[in-house]
Design a protein around this nucleic acid. Structure first.
Length: 159
DNA sequence: GCCAACGTTGGC
DNA sequence: GCCAACGTTGGC
């Protein structure tokens, strides 16, 4: 039986790697996630899942584009690189602790859908993204949330 | 197993 | 740059 593909939101700092960078490179291993809850979400991802790319630590913050998962989860190589800030010397090589997926761009938002605008969408009222203190960098997005976000910027064809 | 200290995230 | 909120660490 076919399962409806899931939707997610992933945060990134545009000064480091933003949606335009994803378009430039065409495909990117989403490495550096070092939070167990976020990792567990990564491991649930399947190729074809949609991903809203959220720019954090930006002015303004908000969703900049929609991407697609193009791999299953696999070990994040940076955990075994001593020179990397994401090195984790306690990760067992035979059972790597941290995972990542590859992501490819799908469509840039014609305009940023800001956090302020997200707060005004009824469908988004229950999203952890809008809750004070939520620091998750990878989180699930419901189908109504996903559709509302795309419609808000006129991308009805992707919703 | 508790919890204080510490580091990080992320909006403002 | 500030600081609230949260996750992790480590002493006990």
């Amino acid at each position: 039986m076919t399962v409806q593909s899931a939707c997610w939101l992933m945060k990134t700092e545009p000064d480091v790697f933003g949606y335009p960078d994803l378009e430039r490179v065409g495909r990117e291993p989403w490495n550096g996630v070092r939070n167990y809850q976020a990792r567990n979400f990564l491991r649930q991802m399947q190729p074809g899942d949609r991903v809203l790319i959220y720019h954090s630590n930006a002015r303004p913050t908000g969703i900049a584009g929609v991407a697609q998962v193009v791999s299953a989860a696999y070990p994040d190589d940076l955990q075994f690189r001593p020179e990397s800030p994401y090195h984790d010397p306690t990760s067992p090589p035979d059972a790597p602790r941290w995972s990542m997926v590859d992501v490819a761009p799908l469509r840039a938002f014609p305009r940023l859908l800001s956090l302020e605008q997200l707060r005004e969408l009824p469908e988004w009222q229950d999203s952890p993204l809008l809750r004070r203190g939520t620091r998750l960098s990878v989180l699930p997005v419901t189908a109504p949330e996903y559709r509302a976000a795309l419609r808000a910027v006129g991308l009805d064809d992707l919703a």
